[in-house]
Every structure is written in structure tokens, then in C-alpha cells.
Design a protein around this nucleic acid. Structure first.
Lengths: 213, 213
DNA sequence: CGAGGAGGGGGACAGATGAACACTAAAAAT
DNA sequence: ATTTTTAGTGTTCATCTGTCCCCCTCCTCG
């Protein structure tokens, strides 16, 4: 075959496993596993197994190696991988909205910028939803809502500081003066949006496991 | 200062140069420069110059190094990151459930294993939800549902192959025989779960931007 | 039947790489 | 005024890591 190296040939299941491992490790820590680390991770008794898999991946065009350099594996399709941003998770955002000493996050959510439509520059954060106040917008208790700092537009879902507590509400400007509306009949809605701190605009939602639907 | 290493201290101009070089090289090729490559790039006569700069950057919290590992420099924000897996997104899963030739994914979703409770080994995939058949479980049209291949348990939400199409349904085993139930009164529910292919069990949900809530 | 590829085991070797030690000099902090 | 930090030079050492060689068992394809 003359143009063999130009095509990305089909990988076997095992080769795909290796490639996935390289990918996730490299994206998590930024460090490419060495052949002996691959060996350990897959439980190979010999380092040769890892080496030959790398060679196969290179022959099929999935990776490019630089010879005789440590951890020097590049992905051939590097371009179409979306960058990852780390979004800090807060249980709630206390009054100090834009102060420098941010509250300690309760964890971190890693999302690719594409799925949330984030830019790498935008300081996004996540809020763990408590209660059912936005159940009408299909936001459940325990969901993680990803928010971005920007000006709210009509019908945006925003995090607002009400009575010292951060709450999700829908931002409505249909009338003359904007107001906030809860998406649950049991909750008070129609709070004038003046004098209220809008802490962020919802751009995405992540619902995790370890819960019942 | 007792807790100096907890804060990101101000870098000197030279240290910032080094950090920028690491950043740009790592983004360009995915490979972190070795100490000798840093040395060459900045024209140091001695390798120690590079090493001491790295040490200074680590002391100031800009990077985290893994000792005695080649090119093992992480940027501080990546150090405590959870492993990330890429899950392929399918618009739908055609009849061939467990065949080797998987349908070409419509994209990729990157999630940290922690937020979905995935294991790195589990072959997860995502399904773009069409329609409102599961609106009662607060799964909206356009959401991405993350699924895992495993045996469904009672009340799990599963992807099932019904009439050649993949649909989300709740798996119920309350009675004698298991059945599938739609979470929308407008949709037919109570489909006997026998003779049906369960293609996956929902473990998470990602709702992206570029849509209206 | 033979050839080749996938997937692996065992071990040796050499170059790549991080780390350590000694010493210098200027700037910055105390 | 003294100490600490920054920013280096020069050299050696230990280990990390890629590479190479020879071996094996399954498969599949011609």
C-alpha cells in the first residue's frame, strides 16, 4: 500500500485501550506515561508489550513518536481535541462576590470547553443545586450547574444573591423592569432584579451518578 | 511566612519566561521540555540553571514536579485533577449492539470520572436525547446522557433498542417481570423488558450551552 | 502449508534525564 | 550590614527510559 501512513488505520480493541490510557493520562496530568508505566498499568510482565503497542499505534498513524526521547509521544489528531477547563465547585457563594479571596471550592469539575460553550478565558464555576426551586427548568437537587460571569440576558437562568444566599432563578426582562422568577410554584417568584447581585449565568449542567433518578 | 507554599507567590520576570516557555512547548507538542532542553533554549551554559529555576517555580506553587521522573512537570492547576475519559457521542445506536464496527461518533464528550462515578475501565458512551420522552425524569431534548454497559437495576434509566431505535426508558422490576416505563404520559410505557436489548445504563447527564432553557 | 500480524515474556544496553555538590556574583530583603 | 533570594557555571552520579534482541502462542490469509 503506497499511502498507508496517510490513513488512520483501524485500531484493535487493545490498541484503542492503550491509546485511551495515554490520552486520559496526558490530559489529566499533562505527563505522558513512559513505556514502563504503561506496562505497570496494564499489568504486562514485560516492557516489550507496551513498546510493541506503541509501535503499532505509530504504524497506524494514531501517534507520532520522537526517537530516543523520554515520554515523547504526540497524538496525531491533537488538533480536534477540545481543551479541558477546571471549574471549581462551590456549595454556595457567600456575600463577597468579586473579592480576591475566593471561597474554598468543594471540588473541581473538569469539562471540555466545547460541551459547555465556554471559552478558556471565561472564569466559570459550578454550583451544587440544593432544593427543587428550579425543577420546572429540569434542574434537580444535587445537580451541578456551571455558571459564567457575564451580563444576563432575557430568560437566562442566573445565580443571584438573595438574603445572603445564592439561589438559581430565571432572569426575565419581558416587562419594563427585570425580575427574577423561580421555576417552582412552591417558591416565591417575581423578585425585582434591582439591588440584587447576579453572580453568574448558567451555561451548562452536569448530573452525576451515585444518586437515584 | 509559615504557609508560603500554599500561596502562589509572585514570579520574577525570568521565572515567568521559563514558565511561558514550558507552557508554549507543552501546548504545541504535548511534550514537556527536559532540563537540558530548557538549558539549550535559554542558552544556559549549565544545566543547573534550568534545574534551579524549576525548583523556584515549584516552591512558588506554579508547577508541581514528580521526583526522578523524566519530563514530569505538571502545571499547578492540573496537579489535583481527576482522571478524564473521552466518551463518544452517538445520535443513536443502530441494531448491531455489541458488534465490533461501532458507529462513527458524532463527537466526543470529556468528563472527569469522578463526577459521573465512572471507572476508567468502563466503556461509557453518550447519547444525544431526542424528544421529551423522559421529561418526567428531568431529561430534556438535546441533553447528553452518559451511559455505561452493565446490568440494569430496578429504577435505573436505560437505553433500550425498541423497533430498531434507541430510546431512554426507566427499568422497573417491581412486579414479577421487568418492564420499561417512559417518563412522559404522552408516551407508551410498560413495555415488557424481555426480548429487548438494554444498550446501557444511565450514569450521568451533561446539558450544554447554545440552547435555551 | 507458510507468512505475517497481534499480543506477550525476559533480559541487556546505552543514551536521556533528574539530582546533587561546590562555587560565584549581583540583587533584594531584613 | 547581614542574610536570603535570584541567577548562574561546571561536573559527577544514579536512575529513568527507549531500544534492541531472541523467545513464545494464537490467529488469519493466501
Amino acid at each position: 500500500m503506497f499511502f498507508g501512513t496517510l490513513f488512520i488505520m483501524k485500531l484493535t480493541a487493545r490498541q484503542q485501550e492503550i491509546l485511551d490510557y495515554l490520552h486520559s493520562e496526558h490530559r489529566r496530568s499533562g505527563i505522558m506515561p513512559s513505556t514502563r508505566e504503561i506496562q505497570k498499568h496494564f499489568g504486562f510482565a514485560s516492557q516489550t508489550a507496551a513498546v510493541s503497542h506503541l509501535r503499532a499505534l505509530e504504524k497506524k498513524g494514531a501517534i507520532v513518536k520522537e526517537e530516543r526521547k523520554a515520554r515523547a509521544v504526540m497524538f496525531a489528531d491533537a488538533a480536534d481535541r477540545e481543551p479541558i477547563v477546571d471549574v471549581p465547585i462551590y456549595g454556595a457563594i457567600p456575600a463577597g462576590y468579586s473579592d480576591d479571596t475566593e471561597p474554598t471550592p468543594d471540588g473541581t469539575l473538569s469539562v471540555d470547553v466545547c460541551s459547555m460553550g465556554l471559552t478558556e478565558r471565561s472564569k466559570a464555576y459550578a454550583l451544587k443545586v440544593r432544593g427543587e426551586s428550579m425543577i420546572g427548568a429540569h434542574i434537580m437537587d444535587g445537580d451541578h450547574v456551571v455558571l459564567e460571569y457575564r451580563e444576563p440576558r432575557d430568560q437566562d437562568i442566573v445565580a443571584a444573591l438573595i438574603d445572603g444566599e445564592t439561589t438559581l432563578k430565571r432572569f426575565v426582562t419581558s416587562g419594563r423592569k427585570p425580575y427574577l422568577k423561580a421555576e417552582n410554584p412552591d417558591y416565591p417568584d417575581l423578585i425585582p432584579a434591582q439591588e440584587l447581585l447576579i453572580q453568574g449565568v448558567m451555561v451548562g449542567l452536569v448530573r452525576g451518578a451515585s444518586r437515584r433518578w
